[in-house]
Computed example of a mutant assay.
Amino acid sequence: MTILPADLTIPYITAREGEEADYLLNLRVGIGPDRRPQLGYVNEEPPDRDPRGVLWARYSMSLDVGGRPTGTPRWRLVHPLRQRTTMALLRCQVCTAPVKRGDGVLFVETADDRDGCTGPVRTAQPPVCLPHARMAVQRCPRLRSKGHVALLATRYPLYGVIGTPYQCTSDGIRPLAGTDTPLPYNHPLIGWFLASQLVRELRDYEVVNLDDLLSGT
């Protein structure tokens, strides 16, 4: 068993040892509101779908007596429900505190030359509060390896999801190759998608320096 430092803060969205995906055998063909076949669960419950009707991957949670995630962090993995919750409710991905500021909502994304981009940015990285912005950069392997850019956004509507597409074959339901490319909510194949991350599109934003923001607090 890995012994973690008592003062180590682990981002809320980070998956933990012992948290596992549900069996694929629990997936089935259902009928959507438009009366067309779509992906569903056996014994499906309302929380399995988001408000726009997209099916989400079930994932167990390892929680302590206070309801907080516990266990050794799996640093490269994100828990689907915790990512979905923080992104949908605009909560900090580290501590779950509300992140709305008077000047916008802070997102930290991989660099990818985004600091020279003026177009919309689609991100699956939930927002972060200013006190934990540096920690998010240091603890996320992707941000640490590829560099980061901080974006203070004033328009950030939900765009779609990242996950795994499925198809119905003569041998039953089969997954297709997953992709990191977000699928928009209005995509015709969204009914056959098993979502694992929620995506927002940052439409109005300013590229900011975290050090400047922190020095102004």
Rank of each mutant, 00 (worst) to 15 (best):
T2L: 01
I3T: 14
A6H: 10
A6K: 14
A6F: 01
L8Y: 04
I10F: 00
Y12D: 01
I13R: 04
T14K: 01
Y23N: 08
I31Y: 00
I31E: 14
P33H: 10
R35W: 07
R35S: 12
P37C: 01
E45P: 00
D48E: 09
D50A: 07
P51Q: 05
P51K: 07
R52N: 01
G53M: 10
L55Q: 13
W56R: 08
W56F: 06
A57D: 03
R58H: 12
Y59G: 02
Y59N: 07
G71F: 05
G71L: 00
G71Q: 08
P73A: 03
Q83T: 06
Q83E: 09
Q83V: 03
R84P: 02
T86S: 15
L89S: 11
L90G: 03
C92L: 04
Q93K: 08
V94Y: 09
A97M: 14
R101I: 06
G104M: 09
V105R: 13
T110Y: 03
D113K: 08
D113F: 07
T118G: 15
T118D: 05
R122F: 13
V128S: 11
C129Q: 03
A136N: 06
V137D: 05
V137W: 07
Q138D: 10
R139D: 08
C140L: 02
K146M: 02
V149M: 01
L151E: 07
T154S: 12
R155Y: 02
R155P: 00
Y156D: 15
P157Y: 04
L158N: 07
Y159L: 11
Y166R: 02
T169D: 06
S170K: 04
I173W: 08
I173A: 11
A177I: 06
T179W: 06
D180E: 15
T181A: 13
T181D: 14
P182L: 13
P182N: 09
L183Y: 08
N186M: 01
I190T: 13
I190W: 08
G191N: 09
G191Y: 04
F193D: 08
A195V: 06
V199H: 11
R200L: 13
E201Q: 14
L202N: 04
L202C: 04
Y205G: 07
E206A: 14
V207Q: 03
V208W: 08
V208G: 05
D211L: 02
L213T: 05
L213R: 10
G216F: 01
